[in-house]
């Protein structure tokens, strides 16, 4: 008897809550073990990137305006959806070359990491705020507020856990983002976008592109409507380039060079603080 023909998945990019193919019509072939073709991955263009920034900017006021509790709920929902699709993520990681045990572990930690950051949503503000005892009759307080639109060059080596570890602290803090997924391990990133899509995350909060770092690095770091850029990797030249480009509009550049994303040190509230601005407000105290 003939085996049932498997329905293959088309891996698309995710912009403004929709899954288009790249406007450029280009692709690159992702190969698995023994050069087995896995998928035609969208080779995102600078126009895709531009559209993503527009979508992220549009989504910003709504997302940053949500209550902390609500953002926590949505991040928790993301973890729930991840849990429900864990088998898919495990198999994608295996397809991309991981052992079953390693894949299992990476998915577990990824889910837990979202739970971790979901829990921070209504606490990091308390942690990083202050009431300042000024020497005049004024009430004065400082609170963190999201920086705005953040672009991210996601970790190349860690297609799911690394990706999640940089996205979660950015969006829990009310930012919106445009992410360039790992070039060599993009499957989980696209599937993760599908998880986001089914987790009450408003369209445009996370925009997921696939493609070539070398092609998009400058756009990610020069765009004048981007407020911060996170570069994951240890390429000194690329890192320098990102930082130089950031100076065009005084973007906040962050170079993250984490080797092992499974460690507990790879998560902490100070990563939320990286894409926050401290706002100080004064008001007289009188009658």
């Amino acid at each position: 008897m003939k085996k049932r023909l498997e329905v293959l998945k088309t891996y698309k990019i995710y912009i403004g809550g929709k899954f288009p193919r790249t406007e450029s019509g280009r692709y690159y072939l992702l190969e698995g073990k023994n050069k087995k073709p896995l998928a035609n991955i969208c080779r995102g263009s600078r126009k895709d990137f531009r559209n993503s920034v527009v979508a992220a900017r549009k989504a910003f006021s709504g997302w940053s305006g949500r209550t902390a509790y609500n953002r926590g709920q949505i991040l928790y929902r993301i973890a729930e959806m991840l849990e429900g699709r864990r088998e898919q993520f495990v198999s994608e990681l295996i397809l991309q070359g991981d052992s079953a045990a390693k894949a299992e572990k990476e998915v577990n930690i990824s889910i837990d990491r979202f739970i971790y950051y979901a829990g921070w949503s209504d606490k990091y503000i308390q942690l990083f705020s202050s009431v300042n005892p000024v020497a005049s009759p004024h009430f004065n307080f400082s609170v963190p507020e999201p920086t705005g639109v953040v672009t991210m060059i996601a970790p190349e080596e860690s297609g799911l856990l690394g990706l999640i570890s940089v996205i979660a602290p950015v969006i829990v803090g009310g930012n919106t983002c445009v992410v360039l997924a790992s070039h060599s391990k993009p499957l989980c990133a696209v599937s993760f976008a599908e998880v986001l899509h089914s987790s009450d995350v408003p369209g445009g909060v996370v925009n997921m592109l696939t493609g070539f770092r070398s092609e998009l690095l400058d756009n990610f770091s020069t765009h004048m409507d981007v407020n911060a850029v996170i570069y994951c990797g240890d390429d000194k030249k690329e890192g320098k380039r990102v930082m130089e480009n950031s100076s065009l509009n005084v973007k906040r550049p962050h170079i993250i060079n984490t080797k092992d994303w499974t460690k507990e040190k790879a998560q902490d509230p100070y990563q939320i603080l990286d894409t926050q601005e401290i706002k100080t407000t004064w008001h007289p105290i009188g009658i």
Partner: peptide
């Protein structure tokens, strides 16, 4: 979108009060 907002006052400074900007 700014780092220091004065409400019903302006140009007040204090060592305990953080000062600095958003954007450029």
């Amino acid at each position: 979108n700014a780092g220091v907002i004065w409400a019903n006052t302006f140009n007040k400074f204090d060592p305990t009060s953080p000062f600095g900007g958003y954007k450029e």
